[in-house]
Amino acid sequence: MTKSELIEILARKRNDIPYRDIEQAVKTLLEQMSESLANGERIEIRGFGSFSLHFRPPRVGRNPKTGDAVSLTGKYVPHFKPGKELRERVNERYDATDGAS
């Protein structure tokens, strides 16, 4: 499912809300989530999961072309931890359909 498919589905489910508003809502939600993480702020959505930043310490890397050592500064990367409901729903359906042990 892509962002545009998500917008289509939401618009079909809520045809009482103008399409433009649904489209803008999805874009605004993703922008706000990105802004939060870009400011070092966590996101906590009960039943879905939480997003936080993980620190990657400075390291010495290599230029793949020349093989020269380059020192890379530490940085943060986004991390997602699925919430209980999401974990269970994804796995229950999998157990039922694929007959995994």
Partner: peptide, 17 residues
Amino acid sequence: RRVVTFRPGQKLKARVD
């Protein structure tokens, strides 16, 4: 089990970086 993983996109990675 089946698990969900999140792979941040280039744009988000750059902003967080």
